[in-house]
Computed example of a mutant assay.
Amino acid sequence: MWEKINKILQEKKTTMYAVSKKAGINQNVLIDLKAGRSKRVYFDNMVKIADALDVSLDEFR
């Protein structure tokens, strides 16, 4: 999951901090994914991340 999010972050030239603020989620959601401490994200958070990155949920499949 993190690989897909990271790829989009790089393409959009944005940061985890900016996305977390725009999505209204705790930055630790993304930090835990990156560090491998979390393998899953709640669906509502995934929707918020997708909206913040301006991509569809299909991008995370």
Rank of each mutant, 00 (worst) to 15 (best):
K7S: 15
I49G: 00
G24H: 05
T15D: 07
V19T: 01
D58S: 08
Q27W: 04
F43N: 12
A52R: 00
N6C: 14
A35E: 14
S20L: 02
D54P: 00
K48L: 15
K34Y: 09
R37D: 10
K21C: 11
K7L: 15
F43G: 09
V41I: 15
K13N: 09
S56N: 13
N45H: 12
L53W: 01
L9F: 02
I31F: 05
A35P: 07
Y42C: 14
V47A: 10
F60W: 09
A52D: 02
R61L: 15
V19F: 01
I25H: 10
D51F: 02
K13Q: 09
K39D: 02
R37K: 15
K12F: 04
N28Y: 05
E3M: 15
I8M: 04
K7E: 15
V41C: 10
I8G: 01
E59N: 03
I31D: 02
D51V: 02
F43V: 13
Q10S: 09
K13I: 08
E11S: 12
L57R: 08
I31Y: 05
I31L: 10
S20P: 05
G24M: 06
Q27I: 04
S38M: 10
F60I: 07
R40Y: 13
W2E: 07
E11I: 12
A35F: 09
T14C: 02
V29M: 02
V55F: 03
Q10K: 12
K7C: 13
W2S: 07
I49N: 00
Y17L: 13
N45K: 14
R40E: 11
D51A: 06
K39N: 05
W2Y: 11
F60C: 06
T14M: 03
A50C: 07
F60Y: 05
N28M: 08
I25K: 12
S56D: 09
R40D: 14
V47D: 13
M46G: 08
E3V: 14
M16A: 05
I25N: 07
I8V: 06
L57P: 14
N45D: 08
V41K: 03
